[in-house]
């Protein structure tokens, strides 16, 4: 990883990377545009929401090197706020989603300020504990309706014109949100800010000695990741017309780690592939109850022991070998 920067042909590699990313993006978008005609639109929408969630998580882990074990708090809280805004306050869907995203961003600032005080394993434990606190708050707060969740959330009229009860309208709206979030993350990763983030991941003391205030960069990455995770959660609540405790539970935090790990952390497309794989698996194994949990655990073990680059990581390594060889 670290010696990449010293390669003489770095710029040629960059150009090749860009071509690969552009081509893969075109293929991905083409698939997503036709997907609802082949698959059940709600299924693809669910997968898209989780894909965005995993991409947001990957921004923090894959590019910032920070393992958050509490990302469910952003997904779930944004879902609650967006559902509440749409149902109780009667906000139009786009404003409700923005409200949910803003709530997650704010929560990201608070949680981030605490969590970045420690590194590595402690960071993971702190985010997990904070998320568990948010879970109990959601369990007890009146506005979340405890075990029932917020049900029958109206999807409403997008921009006052498009009826989101039409599954195709809803689908392309979700796809637009996913694409915007995805491109934003791509932009962040390839910006000077993203480069500093990678430098911190590789060697934080060195980044500090170069004069970077690493704490501020880490906080900014945490808040961005929280906000985009919130965007995914807020959208999900509108799609399913439901915000529930499932989305704030620690199992959800574990699930997004798994999606990212399986797809390939630190790759642009890995989290998308991972999310679609896990959601597909979930839909087949859902009736089997705890077998899904066992399978998830087993995938974790296999990925950590033998498959640390993940699906896209392996694929990209193979492409690179072919390019060089």
């Amino acid at each position: 990883m670290a010696d990449d920067a010293y390669k003489p042909h770095a710029s040629r590699d960059d150009a090749a990377d860009f071509r690969y990313h552009r081509n893969a993006f075109v293929v991905m978008m083409a698939l997503f545009l036709v997907a609802p005609t082949i698959f059940y639109p709600v299924f693809v929408m669910k997968a898209l929401c989780f894909a965005l969630f995993a991409c947001a998580f990957n921004l923090l882990l894959g590019f910032g090197g920070l393992l958050s074990f509490g990302h469910a708090m952003f997904l779930g809280m944004a879902g609650y706020v967006s559902a509440h805004a749409a149902k109780v306050w009667g906000f139009p869907p786009e404003i409700a989603i923005l409200a949910g995203t803003a709530a997650a961003t704010l929560l990201g600032v608070l949680a981030g300020l605490l969590a970045i005080r420690r590194q590595g394993i402690y960071f993971a434990m702190i985010t997990l504990a904070l998320a568990q606190m948010i879970f109990f708050l959601c369990l007890q707060a009146p506005f979340t309706h405890g075990e029932d969740g917020i049900q029958a959330v109206p999807r409403g009229l997008l921009l006052g014109m498009f009826d989101l009860m039409n599954p195709y309208v809803m689908y392309y709206f979700v796809l637009a949100i996913f694409t915007a979030g995805f491109l934003l993350i791509y932009r962040i990763v390839h910006s000077p800010f993203g480069q500093v983030l990678k430098a911190i991941r590789e060697n934080e003391p060195r980044a500090i000695s170069l004069g970077y205030r690493t704490e501020q960069y880490k906080l900014a990455a945490f808040v961005l990741s929280a906000g985009i995770a919130g965007l995914a959660g807020a959208t999900k609540a509108i799609v399913f017309q439901l915000a529930s405790l499932t989305d704030v539970h620690w199992t959800m935090s574990g699930e997004v780690v798994l999606m990212t790990l399986l797809g390939g952390m630190g790759t642009i497309f890995g989290p998308v592939v991972g999310a679609f794989t896990i959601i597909t698996m979930e839909s087949y194994l859902a009736e089997l109850g705890s077998w899904f949990t066992i399978t998830q655990g087993a995938i974790f073990v296999v990925c950590v022991l033998a498959f640390r680059r993940g699906i896209m990581g392996e694929l990209e390594a193979w492409l690179k070998r072919r390019r060089i060889g």
């Binding site: 393992l67 394993i121 066992i294 998830q296 974790f300 073990v301 022991l305």
Partner: peptide, 28 residues
């Protein structure tokens, strides 16, 4: 024992996966 040379986070992920497997089996 295969993970000691890697980032400590992998140990956390592995033991988390093991916990899921064990709890899932007992719940089953």
């Amino acid at each position: 024992s295969r993970l000691y040379k890697l980032d400590h986070l992998y140990g956390l992920l592995l033991t988390f996966g093991l916990a899921l497997v064990i709890q899932g089996i007992f719940r089953n």
